[in-house]
Nucleic acid binder design. Sequence first.
DNA 1: TCTGGGGTCCTAGGACCC
DNA 2: TCTGGGGTCCTAGGACCC
Length: 432
Amino acid sequence: MSKEQTEEKIYLLCDCNNFFASCEKIFRPDLKNRPVAVLSNNDGVVVSRSYETKKLGIAMGSPVFKIQNEINRYHIVTFSSNFNLYLDISNRVMSTLETFCKDLEIYSVDEAFLTFENMTEDQVLNLAFKIKNTILSRIGINIGIGIARTKTLAKLANHYAKKNQDKTNGVFSVLSDHQRQKILLAFPIGEIWGIGRRLEEHLQNDGYISSFDLSKADVAEIKKRYSIVVARTVMELNNIDCIESVENGDSQNQIMWSRSFRDRLYEFDDVNQAISNFTAEVAKKLRSQKLFAKRITVFIRTSYFGNQLKYANDATLVLDYPCNDTRVLIEASRLLLQHIFAPGYAYSKAGVIVHDLVSERCFQSDLFKETPNQDELNKADRLMQTMDSINLNDKNNIRIGLQSKSDFKENKEKLKLSPNYTCSWDDLPEVF
DNA sequence: TCTGGGGTCCTAGGACCC
DNA sequence: TCTGGGGTCCTAGGACCC
C-alpha cells in the first residue's frame, strides 16, 4: 500500500446495503436472518430484498403474484413501502456521515459521496472502517464503502466490496493501480455506472466486453462514436476525475406524480378524475417548496403486458405564467388529457409532471395574453394557503372540481405497512 | 386479480434572427 | 428569383440512475 500523501481528491462512496429491507429489520429483531422483501407502491413488485431473500433467487422487480409460491414456501416477510420511515433513517445516516466529512454529496436516499484530500491509503482505509462501524452501531444499518480517485471507480469499488463481503469486510479501495486493474478485469461493462442496457449492447458489438477493455479505448474515438457521456466514463476509469458534483439542495427541475391504477380505466371521466387528483398532489408539492411551474405534462398508457391493444401518449402545455394554483393546473391537465385520450383502451397508468420550476412568480407580461393582475394572484395565493392548512396531514378534506372524493382507484391499501417507528404522524415531512 | 415511482443529463432538430 | 450560413433558444425524446 502506498504511504505517500496525495493532493488529489479521494472519493468514498458509502452505500446502504439493501436499504429499505434493512430499515424494516432495524425495529424487528425477530426478523434477523430471515428473508424480507419490500414491495412497490401498490404492493405490485419487489423493490428491495434482504440478503436472505436475494439468496433465495428472488429477483429485483419480481411481480408479487409470480413469486407467491416462494413467498409462502420460504416464509418471506413482505412489507408495503414505508417511505416516511426510510427517509427518516436516511437522514440519520447522512447526518452521521457528515460528522466525518463536511464535503458530503448526497446522491440518493441510500448513498453519498464523501471527499477527502491529503490522506494516505492506510489512513483512508482506517477511516472507512470507522465510518462503517459507527453507522452500524448507531443506526443499525450496514453500509459498503468504495474508495477511488473518481466517482465511477468508487462505485465500482463499492460494488466489489459488497459482492466480496467475506474478503473485503464491505470496504474496498482501488487507489493503487494494481487494485484498479483487478476490478476493471472483474466487471463487464454493463456494471459500470452510466452504462445501461442500450449502451452495453452497442459497446459489446464494438468489442468492448470488460471494463478493462473500455478503459483502454481511445477517448476521442468514443466521443465521436458514442457521446461525451461515455467519453467521460472512459476517462473516469483511468483516474481522471471529470464528473461534476450535482449542486445539492435547491432547484429541483421537475416534480412528478404518477400511479398505476388498481383496476383498468376505460372512460375519459375516470381517467380525468385520476389526473385531477395527481395534479392536485403536484400543486401541493409545488406550494410546499414555494415553487411555480412553467410547463405541465400529462401522460397515459395501457399496460405493457397482456394481449390488449397498447397505447401511450403524452402532451405538454406551456402555462401562460408560472403557477402553482391547483385550479389552474387542473384545468390545464384536463385540456391536455382531452388531447391525448383515445377511447377503447384499457388504461393502467397515468401521471402528471410539472417542469421548468422557478421560485419567483416573475413573468413577462404579455400584451396579447390574459394574465391575472397582482390582486387576483394574491387572492389565489391566500385561497391555496387556506386549502393547504386544512388539508395538512394528507387528509385532503377540501377538493376541487373533478378530484374524486374517495381516495379512489389508483392505489391499493397498503396492507403490509410497518408502523412509523421513528416519528409521529403529525410531524412527517412531506417528501414522497 | 396482481408487473413501481421519481428523477437527471445530453442531443438533435426546429424556429427564428441577422 | 434564388441562394446561404451561423448563432441562439427551446423542446422532445433517449438514455441513464436509484
